[in-house]
Structures are given as C-alpha cells and as structure tokens.
Design a binder for these strands. Sequence first.
DNA 1: CGTTATTGTCTGATATTTCAGACAATATGT
DNA 2: ACATATTGTCTGAAATATCAGACAATAACG
Lengths: 266, 266
Amino acid sequence: MSDGAIGLIETEAGAVPRNGERRRGIDRVIVLLEALLRHRAPMRVGDIARMIGAPRSTTYEIVNSLLEAEMLENVGTEGYVYFGRAMHLFGWAYSHHNAHYRRIIETLDRMAAETGETVQLCGLRGNKYIVLDCRDSSGPFRISSDVGVEVPIPWTASGRLLLGHMSEEEVEDFIPPGDYKLPDGRVIAPAEFFSDVALARQQGFSETAALADRFTWCMAAPIRDGHGAINKTLCFVLPVDTPEARRSELLALLCERARALSLAGS
Amino acid sequence: MSDGAIGLIETEAGAVPRNGERRRGIDRVIVLLEALLRHRAPMRVGDIARMIGAPRSTTYEIVNSLLEAEMLENVGTEGYVYFGRAMHLFGWAYSHHNAHYRRIIETLDRMAAETGETVQLCGLRGNKYIVLDCRDSSGPFRISSDVGVEVPIPWTASGRLLLGHMSEEEVEDFIPPGDYKLPDGRVIAPAEFFSDVALARQQGFSETAALADRFTWCMAAPIRDGHGAINKTLCFVLPVDTPEARRSELLALLCERARALSLAGS
DNA sequence: CGTTATTGTCTGATATTTCAGACAATATGT
DNA sequence: ACATATTGTCTGAAATATCAGACAATAACG
C-alpha cells in the first residue's frame, strides 16, 4: 500500500454487491472522482481500485479513459493519478456562468486583500458542511482548510446558520448522532447545539472559538437567496487569540458584505 | 430548438457510427462534458442529445446520473442543465494540489490587482490554444475571453511562444491549414507565422496587435518548466490604443513575473 | 383548430462492457 | 536467495447498459 489508511468506500445504493453483480461504468467514474476528492492526493490505480471496491482490470480501463480525456492526469512517474486539466476548465465554467456566484468570488478576493485574513465561502452538501471556496491568509499564521472536504455540521460556525430554517426536531433528524463528537473527543450536547442554531438565526451571524481545533476563532454570516433562505455563508477563520477589537471590526465587515451579496426577496 | 447554432460534434475515434453500433457510457459522459464546455451555456437534454449524437433515451439516463452526482445541475425551470458544484470542487482540487500552479495563480491575482489589466494564463490543448485561467480587467474597457475555449494557435501571441520548441517543419505539420484564417477573413501566410515563432523564441516574448480582433493588443511571456520547455504563458490583453510607454512598462513586468515563475533547469 | 415539434418516461432485445482470473515483470521484505 | 505483493496487460464469457422506437403530454405555429 502506498500510504495512509485507505478504506473501502460504501456506495449509497447497493450495500454489499452480490457476487456476479456488475456496476455501470458511469457510476464507477462518479465514485472514483469522489474518492479522489476525499483522499486529496494523487493515488495509484491499485489503491483506487481497492478504495472504490472495483476490480483492478475495470479500474485500469476507466482510469485510462479519464486520462485520455484529461479529466485525470499522471502525477510523478510512479503511476499516481489525480484530477486533470479538464476538471479545472469544467469547474471554472461552473463558477463563472452565474452572475451571483461571480459577485461572491469578487467579494471573497476583495475581503482577503483588504484584511489579509483567511476568508471562506461555505455551504452544505447533504448533511455535511463543506468549504466551497477560500482565500488563505497571507500572514505567517496560515490556517488553511480544504475545499470540498465534508465536515460534520456541529463543528462549524457556518453550520449553525445553515440550519436556521429547520425546527429543532428537523435538526435532530438531520444530523447524524456521531457528528456531535468533536475531533478531540469532546461531545456537544444536542440541546446546546439547538440553542446555538436559534441564537445564530436571531443574531444573523455565528461565532465559534476553539471548537473544531484549539487554534481558530471562526465567524460566519449568511448569504440569503431570493427567498430569504440561507444557502451559503461567508466566514473568517482567525487565530483564536485575535484581540476583541479586531474581531468585532471584522465581524461588522463580514455581516455587511454578506448582506450585500444576499438577493432581494422575491 | 432553444437557441444558437447547435451542430453535431464529431468524436475523434469513430467517424460515422455504423448503425447497430453502440458507445460506452463513459465516452458519452466525456463527450457530453466537452460539448457543454464549448457551448458555454446551460443546455436542454434534447439539444445535448443532438449535439453529441446520442439517442435521447441514453442522454436522459446519463444526464440524470450526473445530476445526482452534482456533476451537472439544473439551471432555471425549463429543463436546462449545466456544470454542477462537484465540478467546481474537482477543479479546485486540481489547481491547488500542485505548488507550482498555486504560485502561478497568486501571481495572476497580484498582477491583476497591481495593473488593473486583463491577465491570462494560457497553454495548449492538442493543437489548439486555450486560456487556462484569467483575471478580467477591472476597468470599463473589459475584454474577457472564456477559459477553456479552443482557439487556433496562429490567432494568438502566446501560440507563437508555445511552439518555440518546434522546427518550421514540425509547426507546419502541427497546425491545421484552416487555422491560419482569421475570424475577419484575412489569412496569415504560414511563412510569416514561422518567422513570428522564431522571433518570439529569440526575443523571449511575443506581441500581437489587432490580430484575432480589432480591439486588442496582446503580449505574452513564457513560463518554463524544469527542462526549459514552454508549457504555459502569462499574457496581458490590452486595449489596442494603449500608449507605447504603458505597454513597455507592462511588458517588462510580464517578462519579469513569468521568469520568476519558471522553474530552474534540472 | 389542426399540424408539427418537443419533452420526459418506458420497454424489450442485443451488442458490448464489466468482470474474474491468469500472466510476466518488477518491487519489497526477510 | 526465497517468498510475497504489486503493476500493467490480456482473455473469454456472462450480465447488462445502450439503443430504437413507442407513448402520452405539452408546447409552438400558422
């Protein structure tokens, strides 16, 4: 095995593929790309095969097709592959076709330039939180987090805002029980989390200090769509020891910019 | 038909699919995504089917799979689809896994901020030129070009640099004859183009004035890889009437930054 | 209103793709 | 040097995904 722990990814649909069962090439491609995204590093074909639970011969076949299309590309000389140039182009097309998204990205750029802090755009993917885009701090204290990696919602300030439209019961059904457990072993009481969500809704912003890790102070403000719903949030990720004066200044900026990006009610 | 001209895309391999012939789902996916990239706007399933030469029933099947994976997403309410969020995440992973590419992007950002001009990163895709990334001018005179769209190499300043490693004969074999014809009908003499390529190699930069269109002055400088080869170029796209003093100042900046991004020889 | 084109969903049959397994050629470890 | 694991490539055969075409339901048009 090349490195790290590589486990079998269970696909949503068929739990245990019975023997003699086959899977469609397209589905293999989808699972493969998602596996690569989670792994966040080039992988070898053999490891990919194990990770997505596909036969090696099939995996070679698929990988070669994707390589030819530049959706994947070879990295290094040891048979490693990772996302290719075509993916960059598709992703670029996605993020620029839509005027609203373009404005958001411009704001992200401007805020990063003005403040020098780490700025993120966040949202949900299923019942997990993900960073959709970010600009890393230019300072020596660089906290960077990976775009697209799924994180339990209760670990995040943004998560508290993004559940604002749900009742306490809905939130309870929505969050997998294990997601209240933090990386350091502490467990957030669900009741406490529900009241955090309510507070975030009332305040119109959310903050967490040293929650998912000991070093960061996160603050999030909602970007509302045309119906007033919160699909995305704008966040600062600061060193936890940032002085209060600086924090409140940044919070005000964050809320102002997020409000400016929100669409008028329909 | 919804809009615009939608022609049949010929796939590289099988010229005319004989009747009774089938195509693999994966290949359909690849052709579909490339078609969507060229079209640069949301499309309806029926139009996609026509464009990629696939049966409608197959196209629905594939599109629905990709929608579920968020590789595509619905746009509007009229059955239009375009690239989805997952593509953004895959593309982001591509462009950040590699330290060199990250440095290039930072340079792009900085140059755009410092000069306010349109800056591009360009490269080849097969025997065509494409813009890999860009930062549009902030000024009122905004010339934007689409990332990922294939353009004949002789239309561009970058193209002249990117062929620098080829002999005159190789260039002749490489460029499709039709690519010497400019959008306005003028035709570049191949001999003239070859000497442009030689000049670009000798100077270490390339400029074109009012070539692909009447309004732009383009200047490109090479980014060299570890072997001294030119894979990518850095460009400014300026209004054609930019004063000479400003142009030479920008050219100097461009060459300096491109050189800084080039990797030391191995 | 009749005519024509489109959309989205189903169906059954067959051409094809996925799959298990074998293979030689390297690596890796003891 | 031996045993073990891995890589990349092929093969034949069985399971099935792709395909043509039909269908009802709208939409577009004169």
